[in-house]
Every structure is written in structure tokens, then in C-alpha cells.
Design a protein around this nucleic acid. Structure first.
Lengths: 231, 231
DNA sequence: TAAGTTTGATAGTATTACTATCAAATAAAT
DNA sequence: ATTTATTTGATAGTAATACTATCAAACTTA
């Protein structure tokens, strides 16, 4: 009797809904762990099947290929972040406060733990940071976009853009700012860990405080808001 | 008697320097065209060999694998952008003007045509936009960074960060701003072309004027500079 | 308890990602 | 001008990847 949040995803992402079956959930669970461990390039359905004591054919009954599985995980993540943002900003009316909460939710997505026992959100967050960009950098983007496979991300960007506009109705680039905050969040955690020369922030373990301050500084400065900077 | 700019790259990027031989240059030339055409995932050394009327084995004598070839192209691109920025800012002393030139160089990299006959810069720019991020999103980043395979990009970020600091000596995130401008430039061209919902800019053909204005707006606003916005 | 659905087991194919070998062509050195 | 060295092409081969197909066993639902 898990509380179970509702994560509704585009049906074209999968051949058979993994959320409906034991095997499906096992696929999600182990794919997250395995992609994190060996990286998306080295990840194969064969290896996944072995690790979860199933067979390649069974995995192929749920996902067309590993790219679709990645797309599924990415959509799941954005849907989940949307959910977190919604519950955290539910009773907040001040849009500036909302933006602050959005930023901290984004950065600390890994810390939250909803009752979806087959998804390790902390590991999924790492996958998003390391592999997320690959979901939309393919020759099939246009078709996939046509099929609505990126709607979750689009809606989230939309939502944040609305907050931006309610802070500064004349801000000329609300979606750009919104998506940039998302991209920066993941990028600069990655840079801090692997290419420290091209960022100024540091992370130790899963403490992303400096990333949060940095995003607030960028977002707030862009909107002409005072930056607290008390850190 | 080509004028021939000097593009010096880390020797670990290749097994044999492609710039030194006819076959090497052919590999660079055709790999750029083929990656652009079919995408990096579908690109193989076999297909490349066929397209350039050579053999798989010959290509493998120059590059360890296609990932190293991509790394080579990415390094080449950043080295070339660095060169362009250097010649364009050579006689400019005002750092604000310098930043402006950096941004426009970045965005219009595809338009410039130095005398490197085997590199189609316009197509390479497209590859950077579509595939560039894959160069550093791998499990081997740390080793490759250790080997200095990302130094070109790092140095360029460094250079821009210095300009940022000469405009605002106390700006807390000079490298972050610099790398973000680079990432945004490519990302938002890509978004405009493929995921228009998550950006505000538009591009038609290879006209990136709106991207340039947007980057100026972001960069200048972050540094507390007036934005011209006359467009 | 019969019918339907899902999974496992196994097999098979085309392609990918290489490595190895050797002869032919080309370039460099004497 | 000819030996020597280097580069390329041609071919072959192997292990892994990315699938598809088939059929029986297990499990669920009616």
C-alpha cells in the first residue's frame, strides 16, 4: 500500500507500460542503476537482462531500444520535478519566492524521496546530469518532438516561464531563462565534478549548495532582483 | 599556396596526425560531412571508409575510435573559434566591445572561412550544435581531462572569463558566465531548430541574429551593462 | 479449467567495433 | 637509380551489439 505518486507518461515512450508489471518496474529500477554504473554508451539490453536475471527478449517487449528507455527515464524525471515543484509552491503566492523554490527543488531533486520504490531518485538525478542531454541530441528529435516525447520538459519550462513573467511581465526571454536554469543546473554540477576549470562552483558529494546560490544569482540578476548572497 | 592557419591539437587525440597526410585530411573532411548527414550515433568508420573510397583499417590508423574523432573535431572547432576571437579583438582595448565581438564570433563561426580547405566550417558548426555535448559526456571524461583533451575549450573559457573580469573585477562567476555563453549559443540554436517551445529565439537558415541579441542581453545584464536592444 | 497473456529459453541475422596480415603503392634516403 | 622505409588497400576474422522469431512454461483472468 505505497502512497504512489502518479507519473503519467506519453504512451509512445514504451511498447508496454513498465509501471504496470513487476518485470516492467524491475527494468526501470535496474536500468537506472546500470546506466549510472557503466554509462549509457556501454549500457545494453543484454547486460541489463543479465543483471536483473531476465532475458534480452523480455526487455525488448517493453522498450523499442535503449534510446527510448533513456527518453522514458528523462521524461519520468521531469515529470517528477514538476510534481515536486507543484507541491512545494502550492501555497506560495509571491512569484519571487516561487522562483527560489523552483531553483532549490531543481538542485536538490536527488534528496527528495517519494514513494516510488522502483526508482532511486538520487541515482536518476546523476543519470540526468551525465546523460540527459543525449535524450534530445539525435537525428530523430523532430519526429520524437512531433510525437510529444518532450512534452514533460516543455511544460515544465512553460511553468517556470510563467513565473518569470509574473515577476517581470516584459522580460523578453522567459523560456530561454527557464530552460537555461535547468540546463545550467545539470551542466554545472557535471562541470564541477569533471571539468572544474569551466565553472566556478564546487560540489562535494551530493551537496549542491554552491550550484543553488549560483543559479539564484544568475536568475535573480537577469530579472533585476536583489541577490541575497549570504553564504 | 593556401594561407593555412595553424591549428595545434593535443597529440593524444589521434594515433597519426591527420593534418600531415592526404588521407588524414580526407578523413577529417568526409567525417564532418558524414556525421552531419547521418548523425554521430549512426556514423561508423566503415561507412566513412566507403564514402571516401578508403578502408576501415586505414581510418583506424588515424583514430582509435569514433569518439576520439569527435573529440578531435570539437577541439579543432574551439581552437578555430579562439583564433577568430584573437584576430577580431586584436586591436580592441574596451573589454565591453571585446565581449560583444566574442559573442558575435561565437554565433557566426559558421560564416567565416579560413583557408583550411579540408574543413567545412559551416558544417562543423552544425556538428558542434548537434553533437558537441557528447564529446564530454562519457565515462572517460576524467581520464580524458587528465590527458588534456579539453584544454582548448578550457583556455577559451579562461580567455572570456578574463574579459568578464576586466569588465567587472568582482563578478563572482566569471567562468560560469563564460562557459554558459558558449553552451547557450549552441543550445539555443539547436532548440530554435528542433525544440522551439523551450526557447524564445528563432533562426531561419543560418541567420542567428536573434541568438546573438539574446546572448548579448544575457551577458550584458549579468554584468550590469546597458543592453542596446535596438533590433 | 479453459483461454489468454506474459515471461523465459533459445536461436539466428545483420551490423558494429575492432585487430591482424600481407601485398601494392608511394616516399625518402643513399 | 635503387634499396629501404612508410603508408595504404584488400581481405579476413572475432567478439559484441542490436535486434527478431519461435515455442514452451508459468501465471492470470474469466
Amino acid at each position: 500500500m505505497a502512497i504512489g505518486i502518479q507519473i503519467t507518461l506519453n504512451e509512445r515512450l514504451f511498447l508496454r507500460d513498465p509501471q504496470n508489471t513487476v518485470l516492467g518496474k524491475k527494468i526501470i529500477k535496474h536500468s537506472i542503476l546500470l546506466i549510472d554504473e557503466i554509462g549509457f554508451e556501454a549500457f545494453t539490453f543484454k547486460k541489463l537482462a543479465i543483471q536483473m536475471s531476465s532475458t534480452e527478449a523480455s526487455v525488448y517487449r517493453y522498450f523499442e531500444n535503449k534510446h527510448m528507455l533513456l527518453l522514458y527515464l528523462v521524461s519520468w524525471f521531469w515529470e517528477w520535478v514538476t510534481y515536486l515543484i507543484d507541491i512545494h509552491t502550492m501555497n506560495i503566492s509571491d512569484p519571487v519566492q516561487k522562483l527560489k523554490i523552483i531553483i532549490s527543488t531543481l538542485v536538490f531533486a536527488s534528496k527528495e524521496n517519494p514513494s516510488v520504490e522502483y526508482v532511486n531518485e538520487s541515482v536518476l538525478h546523476r543519470i540526468m546530469i551525465a546523460e540527459g542531454a543525449k535524450a534530445y541530441h539525435t537525428k530523430a528529435v523532430d519526429d520524437e518532438n512531433q510525437d510529444g516525447l518532450f512534452l514533460n520538459y516543455q511544460h515544465l519550462v512553460d511553468k517556470v516561464a510563467q513565473v518569470v513573467l509574473s515577476i517581470r511581465p516584459n522580460f523578453p526571454y522567459p523560456r530561454t531563462l527557464a530552460s537555461n536554469l535547468f540546463e545550467m543546473a545539470n551542466n554545472h554540477i557535471y562541470f564541477a565534478l569533471h571539468l572544474p576549470h569551466i565553472t566556478d562552483v564546487h560540489v562535494q558529494g551530493e551537496s549542491y549548495d554552491e550550484v543553488e546560490s549560483m543559479l539564484e544569482y544568475f536568475g535573480f540578476t537577469m530579472l533585476g532582483l536583489p541577490t541575497s548572497d549570504t553564504r
